[in-house]
Amino acid sequence: MPFGKSIRIFLPEATVTGIRHAEIINRTGQAIACPRSRLDELKEWPETAKPGVYFLFEARLGDSKPMAYIGESESVAERLLSHDRKKDFWNEAVIFSNKDDNLSKSHIKYLESRLESLAKESDRYELENGNTPTQSSLSRSEREAMEELLEDIRLFLGTLGYPILEPLIQSSSTQPKIVPTATAENLAYGELKFSVRNVSALGLQTDEGFVLKKNSTASKTNTDSLSTRLVKLKEQLIADGRLVIEGDHLRLTKDILMSSSSYAAALIAGTSRSGPQSWYSEDGRSLKELEDKAVESSQ
């Protein structure tokens, strides 16, 4: 059972769009988020002159997956100045280091490799990394310490608005050290199914919205009742390969997060639908019945 954490975020200029420093109470890890336009100010932060790992993030635009880059350096601030000249896609960097100065080159190479692997598994961002970093060899005790730091990094990233390490749904390949966002076992409603005409989909209600599962099928055609936003989203998913044409229907190649069960059902059916009345549990109860029962139980 995971324990609760308290994350303290310092805003030196009392603004959420400037530099932010984050730390977890009674832990040695720390994070600094810095807009690209403020890189020259990092020299005022000795935390960024230490060995560490970092992420470069592209702002999320529309429904396409934003880009990200993961790297390591023995002096992160210097490396970021190099990226400022060579990489164009990013608008903010998030840096991670330790307060007690005990991260070696082997440690940060291990972290870089594990972070890239976890980010690929979560599949929320398009990674701009070219080569897969080699995972350095560490003793068992050092690996455990780095895995603990990975959990802190996951929390920092999510709190700062970048859930790049958060799986939409836990898979068998998800490392147990990283706590998943949602699993079929820890969700109140479990796996839900929706079938209409020649298409069928599986999904899960999560804290973030509704996840349509990989290999769900969707209608190739749309009716006039389908919202313009969903028509554009469908076109985007086809363009980037997350929806592929198979005969008389479309198939999802990856899990995708929708804002609601109704949006998810409408995307699948190609027409406006009520999610609570479209999705059903294994025992035949509608999502509406499950939600009504949950409300009654909480009263």
Rank of each mutant, 00 (worst) to 15 (best):
174 T>F: 01
94 V>Q: 10
24 I>L: 09
274 S>D: 15
198 N>C: 03
248 D>L: 14
107 H>S: 13
69 Y>W: 08
208 E>W: 08
32 I>C: 12
193 K>P: 06
62 G>H: 00
180 P>W: 06
144 E>G: 12
234 K>V: 03
218 A>K: 01
40 D>V: 11
48 T>M: 04
195 S>C: 11
214 K>A: 13
229 R>I: 01
202 L>Q: 14
30 Q>H: 00
299 Q>P: 00
151 E>N: 10
282 E>Y: 01
267 L>Y: 08
182 A>W: 10
37 S>G: 05
68 A>L: 04
25 I>Q: 02
188 A>L: 12
283 D>A: 13
145 A>H: 09
254 K>H: 12
128 E>G: 04
8 R>N: 09
50 K>Q: 14
160 L>N: 08
29 G>R: 02
208 E>P: 00
155 L>Y: 11
144 E>H: 04
243 L>C: 03
103 L>C: 03
230 L>P: 01
113 S>R: 00
95 I>C: 08
54 Y>H: 01
65 K>F: 14
291 E>W: 07
169 I>Q: 04
228 T>H: 10
280 Y>V: 09
16 V>H: 09
78 E>R: 12
194 F>S: 11
246 E>R: 14
11 L>V: 06
168 L>H: 11
149 L>H: 02
299 Q>K: 13
51 P>A: 11
3 F>H: 04
123 D>R: 08
148 E>N: 07
272 S>V: 05
178 I>C: 07
151 E>F: 11
182 A>V: 11
21 H>M: 14
51 P>F: 10
165 L>P: 10
97 S>I: 03
158 G>A: 01
267 L>E: 04
74 E>C: 12
177 K>Y: 15
119 A>K: 10
45 W>C: 12
147 E>V: 06
119 A>Y: 15
233 L>Q: 07
234 K>C: 00
177 K>W: 15
190 G>F: 02
3 F>R: 11
58 E>I: 01
258 M>R: 02
85 R>F: 06
18 G>E: 05
166 E>V: 12
71 G>C: 03
208 E>V: 09
120 K>T: 07
245 I>R: 03
276 P>F: 00
176 P>T: 11
97 S>C: 07
195 S>E: 14
36 R>V: 07
20 R>I: 05
